[in-house]
């Protein structure tokens, strides 16, 4: 690992000015991706800006109109949170499916999103929740719908000197949802395919990971399902539309063909669960 200068800003303002001063700096949050990249020489930052102690990035706020998850909140803080685990079990399932307990004690939800991996596990429930990314930068704050946030593999709308301060969503965004993850091994594995399927009244929200350059909503499927009763035929048809909407690749984890079949199967099965459990 190369040498660097280490900063531990106490405010967002301080953080952003450090970013502006050091163009080759890296933000350190949970560090579970950054430190591996530094070890492998894939990233050689001149400066490390450790943001995880900034007070504004801490905590989970459960309000009547908004749920807010701070930018430094870890995966385990999410699923250990009594209200979140009661109200949003699918989000907690997704957070719990990331890495090992040791990783989840460090890795943050914000980091998972900012990395913009096609298979970011927490992205799919948050896409279904129509979450909003809150940022702070040289030009003040911004709110970016998660749906627009991902641009391509490892590319987001985040500006160079911007920091994600948190993620918010409406408490009543969904009536119910199901998170599904397929991986090679039972635990501590990357998704072969992951998905969240949610229902709000007669509307459905469906998001998939590992089937396209970014995690994405399947709007065509959602449109098809709107106000429909989830009969066997409807579920099967939805699965077929989904198969035609996604564009997975083949890699060491699975072939494109298998992923396509799994997209159809897990969507069909998740819809069945929604239908069964009302």
């Amino acid at each position: 690992m190369e040498n660097f200068v280490y900063y531990k800003p106490q405010t967002l303002k301080e953080c952003v000015s450090l970013l502006e001063e050091h163009p080759d700096a890296a933000l350190l949050n949970g560090g579970t991706d950054l430190i591996i990249q530094m070890r492998e020489g894939l990233r050689i930052p001149t400066d490390i800006i450790d943001i995880k102690n900034i007070p504004d990035l801490q905590g989970i706020k459960v309000g009547p109109d908004e749920i807010f998850i701070g930018g430094a909140v870890t995966m385990s803080q999410v699923y250990d949170h009594p209200e979140l685990s009661k109200l949003f079990p699918y989000l907690c399932d997704a957070a719990r499916s990331v890495g090992s307990i040791q990783i989840r004690n460090r890795a943050t939800i914000a980091g998972n999103l900012v990395n913009a991996s096609p298979l970011a596990d927490t992205a799919t429930p948050l896409l279904c929740l129509e979450a909003v990314i809150h940022t702070y930068g040289p030009n003040g704050t911004r709110e970016i719908p998660l749906n627009e946030f991902f641009v391509f593999v490892r590319k987001t709308l985040l500006e160079p000197n911007e920091v994600v301060t948190g993620i918010s969503f409406k408490p009543d965004a969904l009536d119910k949802a199901v998170f599904t993850k397929l991986s090679r091994r039972n635990e501590v594995d990357l998704s072969t395919v992951c998905c969240s399927v949610g229902r709000k009244g007669g509307e459905y929200r469906i998001a998939f990971g590992s089937v396209a350059p970014t995690p994405l909503r399947l709007l065509d499927v959602e449109a098809y399902l709107k106000d429909k009763e989830l009969t066997d035929d409807v579920r099967r048809e939805a699965a077929e539309i989904a198969r035609g909407t996604v564009s997975p690749i083949s890699d060491v984890r699975a072939s494109k063909e298998y992923r396509l079949d799994m997209v159809a199967n897990i969507l069909e099965d998740a819809l069945a669960i929604l239908q069964k459990e009302g």
Binding site: Y6, K8, G31, I35, D50, S76, S100, Q102, I103, N105
Partner: peptide, 20 residues
């Protein structure tokens, strides 16, 4: 694995500088 502030972490993924 070591225990840091009461939770288990991979010490290979923590920077020494963070320890303060």
């Amino acid at each position: 694995t070591v225990i840091m502030d009461g939770v288990a972490v991979n010490s290979c993924l923590v920077l020494a500088a963070e320890l303060d």
